[in-house]
Design a binder for these strands. Structure first.
Length: 492
RNA sequence: AGCGAGGUAGGGUAGCCAGGAGUGCCCGCCGGGCUCAUAACCCGGAGAUCGGUGGUUCAAAUCCACCCCUCGCUACCA
């Protein structure tokens, strides 16, 4: 049996889960479900990143100890994913004792390898923003984010010899052209690596909330280092299920953190003598109603509100349908409604409803010759999903939805009777059954509703050929409801 | 500034890497068909000098050069 290890980043808990987190996690969930459908042994990991200065400060602000604070925040993420039907196998928290143990073992390994040395970290610090700023980022000598004065800080720090791995990283990219996907994003990173790599400061003295650097107590590990290692601690490296699932098949990340996953992470792994992951996939960003989503702008839509109104499947569908995985896109409620009304209701919902009406009225044998399977290329869809091309995969599935609707018209099914009608209904139900299987990773609830109405067993991807139809049809109303677009007219 | 991505009918996209009639898809618009279906479905139509200029070629949306415009990234911000 093939294995499939997929991860989301672990989310930093100084913020509530927003649409971006939801997107990343949903996409990973889709791939996890797809591979389960293929029969693979899937390990799907998500979690929370709970250390660091920002968390410490955020806790203080609320008058809480960091432990209390992160417990509450992590619970929010866990509940959220549960509510959204996310099928992660493990939820890893960086405050988990297992994680701390793994991190310390890992650090010891690269320390023993001679890749950590003591130096001095120097940089610009914006006190009001509580953030470090590089020389390059400065705007007229001031903070590029808020425009206020910055001060120079110096701190004793331990460094990881990132620069040492420059050539090995370039070789890695060279050998595995798909290591960092999509391609157009890989270029950015590769060119930056070619320009040279500075060593990475990996400890902080000023920060208390983190994992101790055992080789010189009093120093705390830089949160990013701590965070990346979660991909190993979830497997209980070096033992546990490490051998079963490593290397990770794909780390799904936002484009902002591609650098950490495509450069720093493989370098750390090389230092520890561990194989790098197979793929880092960096997806794009959503703008909201055409505007950048940002904490400061405060215009982030709440995914909970959206799903309460429109359902989880509608949001999942929108995520996949609205933008190619990897590129940027715009999230707008009006466009969401347009897709629900025009595609989920008019195409899919209507197809299932009208077909079941025909089937229920028909008293004869539902059997015939496969006709509607022509044009539906399952292997092609598998290939697309293998390339993480959900955009074209869903399009291919939708072509079958439209093809099936067209089939009813072409056959003028409502005028037929007897064997001819039995044959048409057979083709309709088989097509819908296959559609429901293919759709199940994308819209699990909807897929299940269709399956129940068809009265068929749960099936995997190996049942996507037309065979005998062995269901007991029972129509149960519409799959989706329409929404008014009055307040959301998008394309006047 | 450097690096990267993109500019294709009213809107959104695919096609470009491996040149071959502007070819496709979705929405919108116009017309028709149908009545199994949530005014849903199906068919047909209008609508594009494929950002601009020049070049290579029998042939360019596609390759090359230059220019214009838009947007990202530039590392210890998780």
């Amino acid at each position: 049996m093939a294995k499939f290890y997929i991860t989301t980043p672990i989310y930093y808990v100084n913020d509530k889960p927003h649409i971006g987190h939801t997107y990343t996690t949903t996409m990973a969930d889709i791939f996890a479900r797809w591979h389960r459908l293929l029969g693979d042994d899937v390990f799907f990991l998500t979690g929370t990143d709970e250390h660091g200065e920002k968390v410490q400060k955020a806790a203080e602000k609320q008058g809480l100890g960091p432990e209390e604070f992160v417990d509450a925040m992590a619970a929010q993420f866990m509940e959220r994913w549960k509510g959204f039907g996310i099928t992660n196998d493990v939820f890893m928290r960086t405050t988990d004792p297992q994680h701390e143990r793994t991190v310390k073992d890992f650090i010891k390994k690269i320390y023993d390898a001679g890749d950590i040395y003591k130096g001095e970290y120097e940089g610009w610090y914006c006190t009001p923003d509580e953030t470090f700023v590089t020389e390059l980022q400065l705007k007229d000598g001031k903070c590029p984010y808020c425009g206020r004065e910055v001060r120079k800080v110096k701190e004793e720090s331990y460094f990881f010899r990132l620069g040492k791995y420059q050539q090995m990283l370039l070789d890695l990219y060279d050998r595995n052209p798909d290591f960092l996907s999509p391609r157009f994003r890989a270029m950015e990173t590769i060119n930056r690596v070619k320009e040279g790599l500075n060593d990475l400061s990996i400890t902080r003295k000023s920060v208390k909330w983190g994992i101790e650097f055992e080789q010189d107590k009093g120093n705390v590990l830089y949160v990013w280092l701590d965070a990346l290692i979660n991909y190993l601690s979830a497997l209980k490296w070096p033992d546990g299920t490490f051998e079963d699932f490593w290397p990770a098949d794909v780390h799904v990340v936002g484009k902002d953190i591609a650098w950490f996953h495509a450069v720093i992470w493989p370098a750390l792994l090389m230092s520890a003598g561990i194989e790098p992951p197979k793929k880092v996939f960096s997806h794009g960003w959503w703008t909201i109603e055409g505007r950048k989503m940002g904490k400061s702008l405060g215009n982030a839509v709440d995914p909970v509100d959206i799903t309460r109104k429109y359902g989880v499947d509608a949001l999942r569908y929108y995520f996949v349908r609205e933008m190619p995985f990897g590129e940027d896109g715009d999230f707008s409620e009006g466009k969401l409604i347009a897709r629900i009304n025009g595609e989920l209701v008019d195409d899919l919902g209507n197809l299932v409803y009208r077909s079941l009406t025909l089937a229920e009225r028909f008293g004869g044998n539902i059997t015939g010759t496969p006709e509607l399977d022509r044009g539906l290329d399952i292997e092609n869809i598998k290939g697309l999903m293998q390339k993480l091309d959900t955009f074209n995969a869903i399009e291919a599935i939708w072509e079958q939805v439209r093809r099936t609707n067209r089939y009813i018209n072409e056959k003028q099914a409502w005028k037929l009777s007897g064997e001819q009608l039995g044959n048409v209904i057979y083709n309709l139900l088989e097509s819908i059954r296959v559609i429901s299987i293919l759709l199940s990773p994308f819209m699990p609830e909807t897929s299940e509703k269709i399956r129940v109405q068809l009265g068929v067993e749960k099936q995997g991807l190996n049942h996507c050929g037309f065979g005998e139809f062995r269901g007991k049809v029972s129509k149960q109303g519409h799959l989706f409801e329409k929404f008014s677009r009055e307040k959301h007219s998008e394309n006047p």
